[in-house]
Nucleic acid binder design. Structure first.
Lengths: 223, 223
DNA sequence: AAACTAATTTAGGCATGCCTAAATTATATA
DNA sequence: TATATAATTTAGGCATGCCTAAATTAGTTT
């Protein structure tokens, strides 16, 4: 079995590969809050285990085996987040941290029981997709809220999960995934967004909006 | 924060202290499946942390601080066992192993939510007492099943939790804590027990009976 | 009391995974 | 092309927690 640290490296490589593309030692080290020299060491070890490919000075890639493990850990993480949120009522700004520890430790049995309890869900409380038990990820297309125009309606698809204070803030406006809203006003010069959620008007700063992703975007009827 | 290993040592010292009395380095090492030299090393470290008292060649004792941590871990373990059993339907012969890993990792928040969900329980699925959040243990008096006489009635109070196969065996007779039964026959020369559970007669070998503890013992009416 | 046995502790080693500092390689600029 | 800068890797160290082998201490026997 792999160590927790090794699992964290594989998970991080997968995530960085998803958005960025090339995963350098430095980027990986920064993401894991570790020095580059430490990342080099773990990369070497993972390479001997045939979980990653690596060419000096050229970055890391997951092998099929490495990707499978990364997806397994991500699945654990997201299932746990949703389970803690729905079954135990842990507030959504706390589930990430908790799942970060539990994801390395739960058995396949517990994974399966949570999955069943939750009705085989496809997204965690922040809207991130949950890989199925075969490692298949169903991605949904979404755009950053900052791309919205005045008058458009949409639904929250996903929010960043790593900043607890930000999540509390977003949660206070009820901007959970699935929530629909309409853009009432976009202040000029990269100013805040005023939106309408179920009749309530709230103002969302640009920095916050960058961490919110939406889908089901529709233009206003009267244009 | 303590390491998982240190927590396991404290927990083990507590448990050995409970039944045996004096906890020697050797006993502790054997219990933890570790060499005596390793136990010596950890004992030294725990001593510098003022979690145990130790005199060379004379055994270990928990300090108040050490006992508090031990009880906290045991509370986690037993709450987790019951939660996994009741909320997720993990079979009772699997919950021990799972809880063994999770006990070091859950937050106070999750502990509290499980406690609430379960209605502030006082015993785990094997009948072992769950310390309350202040570390208070409510012990119930029970006797080994092997002390029972023909004709007596009683209820299962507790069963050993560390042998998975044994638990499956006991479970197949429905001998869960709380289950009442009557002793129909005790075979001579330390032979097996024949008991009546809800009208069904089953035979329990002596070796198995040693791991079952009962309370509410009553003598037959017609004697 | 001396000697033997059992328990415990000390000493030295190994793997993991982090660190800092120095050396190396790649890339961009003059 | 030569040099400066940035990224990466190597080298050596530290803490944790396990191991084996050897030394020490305690307790028991003769």
């Amino acid at each position: 079995m792999l160590t927790h640290a090794a699992e964290d490296y594989l998970k991080s490589i997968y995530k960085l590969q998803e958005k960025g593309g090339k995963v350098s030692t430095g980027i990986l080290a920064e993401y894991l809050d570790v020095k580059p020299a430490s990342a080099t060491g773990m990369i070497k070890k993972l390479k001997t285990m045939k979980l990653v490919r690596h060419e000096r000075y050229r970055g890391v890639t997951l092998t099929a085996a490495g990707k499978a493990i990364a997806l397994e850990i991500i699945r654990h993480h997201r299932l746990l987040e949703l389970y803690l949120f729905k079954a135990l009522g842990v507030p959504w700004d706390g589930v990430h941290e908790e799942a970060e520890k539990l994801e390395h430790v739960i058995s396949e049995e517990v994974e399966a029981r949570m999955d069943e309890f939750l009705g085989y869900p496809t997204a965690d409380p922040h809207g991130a997709p949950i890989p199925d038990k075969n490692g298949v990820v169903t991605q949904t297309a979404s755009i950053p809220m900052t791309d919205l125009q005045k008058g458009q309606t949409c639904a929250v698809a996903e929010v960043s999960d790593n900043d607890s204070a930000l999540l509390r803030h977003i949660g206070s406006f009820n901007l959970y995934p699935g929530t629909a809203f309409r853009v009432v006003e976009v202040a000029p010069f990269d100013g805040p967004f005023t939106i309408d959620i179920a009749g309530q008007q709230v103002v969302i700063g640009r920095e916050v909006a960058k961490h919110i992703f939406v889908d089901q975007v529709q233009d206003p009827d009267n244009v």
